[in-house]
Simulated scan of single mutants.
Amino acid sequence: MKIKAIDLYAIHLPLHVPFVISYHSYQYMPSVIVKIETDEGIVGYGESVADEHVTGETWEGIFHTLKNTLGPAVIGQNPMEMEKLHEIMNRTIYGAPTAKAAIDIACFDIMGKKLGQPVYQLIGGRYHDKFPITHVLSIAEPEQMAEEAAAMMAKGYDSFKMKVGTDIKKDVKRIEAVRKRIGNNPAIRVDVNQGWKNSAATLTAIRSLRDLEIDWLEQPVLADDIDGMAFIRSKTDIPLMIDEGLKGIREMREIIQKNAADKVNIKLMKCGGIYPAVKLAHQAEMVGIECQVGSMVESSVGSAAGFHVAFSKKIITSVELTGPLKFSKDVGNLHYDVPFIQLTEQPGLGIDINDEHLQEMTVFQDAIR
Rank of each mutant, 00 (worst) to 15 (best):
V43A: 11
H16F: 15
H128N: 13
Q365K: 15
G228A: 09
Q346K: 14
E360H: 08
G350Y: 02
A99W: 08
I88E: 13
K161A: 01
E298Q: 11
A150P: 01
H335D: 11
L240V: 06
I214A: 03
K279S: 10
Q219E: 15
A261E: 04
V192K: 01
S300D: 05
V319T: 14
K326F: 09
A205I: 00
A187D: 05
K4P: 07
E143D: 15
T344D: 13
P30T: 03
G116Y: 10
M145A: 13
N354K: 02
K161F: 02
N185W: 02
A205H: 00
D355G: 00
I232M: 03
F63D: 00
C291P: 03
R91S: 11
T236N: 11
A106E: 09
E143C: 04
R233K: 14
L203G: 13
D215A: 12
K84H: 15
E213L: 12
L240W: 03
Q283T: 06
E148C: 07
Y120I: 06
I232A: 04
A284I: 03
P324Q: 11
I103A: 10
D366K: 09
K170F: 06
N198T: 12
G332H: 04
L70H: 07
A99C: 09
M241T: 10
G71F: 03
T69A: 14
A261Y: 07
G272Q: 05
K2P: 06
A367T: 15
T166A: 04
V264S: 07
Y336W: 08
H12N: 14
F307A: 12
L13Q: 09
D337L: 05
G46V: 14
I6G: 12
L325T: 10
T92S: 12
A106K: 01
G95E: 04
W216R: 14
M269A: 08
A304F: 00
M229C: 14
D129A: 14
H24Y: 14
A305C: 00
D171K: 06
K169S: 08
S22W: 02
R207A: 15
P239E: 10
N354R: 03
L334S: 05
D262C: 01
Q365L: 13
Q342I: 09
K263E: 00
D39E: 15
K170T: 12
G116L: 07
K329Y: 10
I33V: 15
M145G: 10
T65R: 02
A205K: 03
D225V: 04
I182E: 07
G273R: 08
E356F: 06
P14S: 04
F160P: 04
I353F: 13
L321I: 13
